[in-house]
Design a protein around this nucleic acid. Structure first.
Length: 576
DNA sequence: GCTACGTTAAAAT
DNA sequence: TTAACGTAGC
């Protein structure tokens, strides 16, 4: 993530800092970095989408830090990542692949009853979903914390805000873990902030002004600095083999001109340099200088810095690598956290009639194509939501969807109006809209009865505990592609698994379609089975009487963790 | 000797 | 996922 080895390279310029330095100031926060850290403590629960309270611990983590800032009279401005930009697709795909592999390994270990190993893999499998971000957004809203969802990269948005005066929504510094902020030109960046508010700061002006410090940037301007970053390897473009941050720095200091560096590199590296490296290089450079950001004052998408005419010409007027243009109304809806930036589905909360204040999720999937939003289908979908969390004063703040219900619904309606329906001009569009029925799943409000899940502990022939799910009885309109994948992983049919993956990768597929495939799979397989070693469960320790207290204690704790696992699995399947 | 690259431990509680 | 460490190669 970020620029390879940049932080290490910039070590001489990092200074220890405490956030109280920004007392009375506005400070930007890269939401992703705290969400990700917070998710470590509950990685299994998140991956299994368990409904235990522990799953929401990442929200506590985040709010703890927000409260820390507020304690020091800092105004936090939380910025979320938006959609992915095309030139980052490779990086994203690679990350997805790794997470998926780790998730599968984790499930394997879980089935073996090895909770520790499973947790280890789950921690590598975490991804921060739009839903998690949205849950946080709801808390931030209720706590009156300023937040913003960037159209694309949060880093770009943060760096842009760092260049604005406070009166126009600007921020004095950014808290993040991502070295990209430096490439985007963020003036003051705080890395590695701990729970007490201690961190390491890099101030860009000091970097360029420093008289005689080891990696010297005295003859650098911003563009050369970005050039160095791209050469060293970034999310948008891997480096040429043999080039790291040091070589990148020395090339740039020597030639002081990026075109010259590129031609020298071509000469020296020959075939090792990819054909289109120069083109990709220019694009990556452009991302760091001209990324699309949301301009709150004008309420529309803008470039971080205007794209100069000569650059536009050299790119043949094509700027889609920065991510497609987004109409102002949609960009605003995204920025305010009402539209999922990658799927363009509306986040809407409202209350299940006659039930606990447990927010229901309705999604209005809308796809954005070539700068035009298209309503593809409407569908109701249920999801988990948090119940409560602790505020700074130690009080418990209840989520109250009712009071905001009408507001969200009208927002949703407004959104549907503002996003014009597609003109059916291709068979593809027609197919998608026809294939996805506008009807809601059978009964999204139905509460799953626990009786429908049988816990069968008597299979002594296999020595396994089986959690048996009858999908005939279970309505699963809430299932997301991830849910389905993990359930199928529990099942026994590899062929069905492949089939589901294919459905998952088909962007036009709807949740209904996926759910029905699951039902089909379950008909042929009959069961979903999660296993634990019977032996381990049988080793429930009696009170230590043979003098091996230590051993007994270990056994007891193992048993306890097995019980936990079992509960997690049960919770996973018994969600309403 | 310096640099790039691969491997490994720690992160949060 | 990153930071730190060791190693291989120029």
């Amino acid at each position: 993530m970020g620029i390879k080895d940049l932080l290490k390279f910039m070590k001489p310029y990092t200074e220890p800092v405490h956030i109280k330095k920004y007392d009375g100031k506005r400070v930007g926060i890269d939401a992703y970095s705290w969400l990700h850290k917070g998710a470590y403590s509950c990685s299994m629960e998140i991956c299994l989408n368990s409904n235990s309270e522990k799953k929401l611990r990442y929200l506590d983590y985040f709010m703890h830090r927000i409260n820390l800032l507020r304690h020091y009279k800092i105004t936090p401005v939380v910025v979320f990542d938006g959609g992915n930009i095309p030139c980052k697709a490779g990086t994203e795909q690679e990350r997805y692949r790794k997470r998926k592999a780790n998730r599968e390994l984790a499930m394997e270990k879980l089935k073996e009853g090895n909770v520790n190993a499973a947790t280890d893999f789950f921690q590598r499998a975490i991804s921060i979903t739009p839903l998690m971000a949205h849950q946080l957004i709801q808390i931030l809203r209720s706590e009156n914390i300023e937040f913003l969802v960037a159209p694309y990269e949060a880093d770009a948005q943060l760096a842009y805000l760092a260049g604005l005066e406070a009166e126009r929504g600007g921020i004095a510094a950014v808290i993040t873990e991502d070295s990209d902020l430096l490439a985007y030109g963020c003036q003051a960046t705080i890395f590695k902030m701990d729970r007490f508010g201690n961190g390491e700061e890099i101030v860009l002006d000091k970097v360029f002004d420093a008289a005689a410090r080891k990696p010297s940037f005295q003859c650098f301007d911003k563009e050369l600095f970005i050039g160095m970053c791209v050469l060293a390897g970034c999310d948008f473009l891997p480096s040429v083999p043999g080039i790291g941050i040091s070589k990148a720095h020395s090339y740039v200091s020597k030639y002081r001109n990026l075109d010259r560096v590129l031609s020298v590199l071509k000469l020296e590296k020959g075939r090792q340099m990819p054909e289109d490296y120069s083109k990709s290089f220019i694009e990556a450079l452009a991302v760091f200088q001209h990324a699309r950001i949301y301009e709150s004052n004008n309420q529309r998408l803008e470039h971080m810095k205007p794209v100069p005419q000569n650059l536009l010409e050299s790119l043949d007027g094509k700027l889609d690598f920065l991510g497609p243009e987004i109409p102002p109304s949609v960009a605003t809806a995204i920025a305010q956290g009402n539209l999922d930036p990658s799927t363009m589905e509306a986040f809407v909360c409202f209350r299940r009639p006659g039930c606990l204040p447990d927010p229901i999720f309705i999604q209005n999937p809308v796809q954005l194509q070539k700068s035009r939003a298209k309503v593809v289908s409407r569908q109701m979908n249920r999801s988990m939501a948090f119940l409560s969390y602790k505020t700074e004063g130690g009080g418990v703040l209840k989520q109250e969807p009712l009071s905001t219900e009408s507001m969200y619904i009208s927002e949703a309606l407004a959104l549907q109006k503002l996003i014009s329906p597609p003109k059916v001009n291709s068979t593809e569009t027609a197919m998608v809209t026809n294939d996805v029925p506008l009807k809601a799943p059978k009964n999204p409000f139905r509460i799953q009865q626990v009786e429908e899940i049988n816990l069968d502990q008597e299979d002594s022939s296999t020595g396994q505990i089986s959690v048996v799910i009858d999908h005939e009885k279970m309505n699963i309109p809430w299932a997301t592609p991830d849910d389905i994948q993990s359930e199928v992983f529990h099942g026994k049919s590899p062929s069905k698994k492949r089939k589901l993956n294919k459905v998952h990768s088909d962007q036009g597929a709807s949740i209904t379609a996926q759910a029905s495939v699951v039902t089909k799979a379950e008909n042929s397989d009959n069961l979903c089975v999660a296993k634990e070693s019977q032996e381990s469960v049988n080793s429930m320790p009696k009170m230590a009487s043979n003098g091996k207290g230590k051993n007994e204690k270990a056994k007891r704790s193992k048993h306890k963790s097995l019980e936990k696992t079992k509960n997690t699995i049960l919770n996973f399947f018994s969600r309403a």
